[in-house]
Design a binder for these strands. Structure first.
Lengths: 209, 209
DNA sequence: CTAACGTTTGTCCAACCGGTCAAAATTTTG
DNA sequence: CAAAATTTTGACCGGTTGGACAAACGTTAG
């Protein structure tokens, strides 16, 4: 797809990292169209033309950012493994996703922004790599169901519900904090969420008979 | 906050509705900064200056849209009532929210966009009206838990999980459809989702002993 | 009919924005 | 050190955007 990776000097590597870090901050807060090169340049501590020396177009920054994001973003799902106890596997998948929402909220929001706008830049990846990965894992989950290890349901929607509930704490963070208020909405909210989600996915809400 | 509502001619009422409808389409697809007055004007079938005759600033359109949105958006939660069987109440709340995601995806995306950008325009409402409403309903749910009608958990995070799982089908629609593929991702996906969510919130994933 | 009022349009503007370019400053290399 | 290569900067450009405005057009009531 791309030619061989261009050689880069030490300065180029450092400055490119600096720009990507600044761009993550700006893009995740304002979206692609809502962000200006000037904003990113200022956040990175350099002038606009200087930034454009490292990335020729605004889109190049976004593209690079998105490519890096996707690998780390899908890592937890890739780790979902056939070995080990199914219920434990699912529980640690949920925990890992929630930790990502806590530790990398900007990445989550960048992704959410892209999807919300119709995923114009990563549609091929959704229909290709992501679809294949989910199919693979859905098969694993189906195996667990056939073996009677977990209840029978739709594996795809199960995965969606894990994505939705965990990423909610990154993407809708301001709302979560506003609704919980200063006391409940402090740092402890992720542990509360983890406890709740564990129970939800394990037992649901029906009272113990 | 605002003076008495200005008198409006018949034409003004109609045209304002037309503009709001067009703006919902454009804003929900491109975000606030990503949308131009020209786009909205074209979608509404009028010229930019003409549109600006009805709404003096771009922000006014967005603000009006947001105010209207919030009422209908919170209606399902307001309906969550103490009368009736708790488990049934929760199930129909989930169903109503999922129906809103299906029937009003643009409203959902508009709201998601606003929250993602840090809710600059509706923060007071989140900390006021919304927080109060959720507190009220959390108390109702706590009552159910005390009465042994549903399992004991955190009512706040329960509400978040319902929001997250249902709105996911509007906000991340492109991703859902891409991952499900043409066959599974058709119109039936909302029924599949409803079935899955009902089971999840009722029984969780633990296999029936 | 006509005056008053409401609506629509074309033109214009200043600010912003993505990106170019050549020259200056700096760093690297021989 | 000095030449070569790299990095930084200021000035600039064309296109877009939000919004202003006055003139033209349409509608309605006396």
């Amino acid at each position: 797809m791309e030619g061989s990776a261009p050689r880069r000097t030490r300065i180029q590597q450092e400055k490119r990292e600096l720009i990507l870090e600044a761009a993550l901050e700006v893009f995740s807060a304002n979206g692609f169209r809502g962000s200006t090169i000037d904003q990113i340049a200022e956040a990175a501590g350099m002038s606009k033309p200087n930034l454009l020396y490292y990335f020729r177009r605004k889109e190049d920054i976004h593209e690079t950012l998105m490519q890096r994001l996707l690998d780390t973003w899908l890592a937890p799902l890739r780790e979902l493994d056939d070995i080990g106890d199914p219920m434990t596997e699912l529980r640690s998948y949920i925990r890992r996703k929630l930790e990502m929402a806590r530790d990398f909220p900007r990445e989550s929001r960048l992704f959410a922004n892209e999807i919300l706008q119709g995923a114009p830049r990563i549609m091929p990846m959704l229909e290709g790599e992501l679809k294949t990965l989910v199919e693979e894992k859905a098969a694993v989950i189906k195996g667990w169901m056939r073996a009677g290890k977990i209840a029978r349901t739709d594996p795809w929607h199960l995965i969606f519900s894990i994505w939705a509930t965990t990423q909610h704490y990154a993407d809708f963070d301001v709302q979560v904090r506003a609704v919980l208020g200063p006391d409940r909405g402090g740092d402890g909210r992720f542990e509360d969420a983890a406890r709740f989600l564990e129970q939800l996915f394990l037992d649901g809400l029906k009272p113990k008979a």
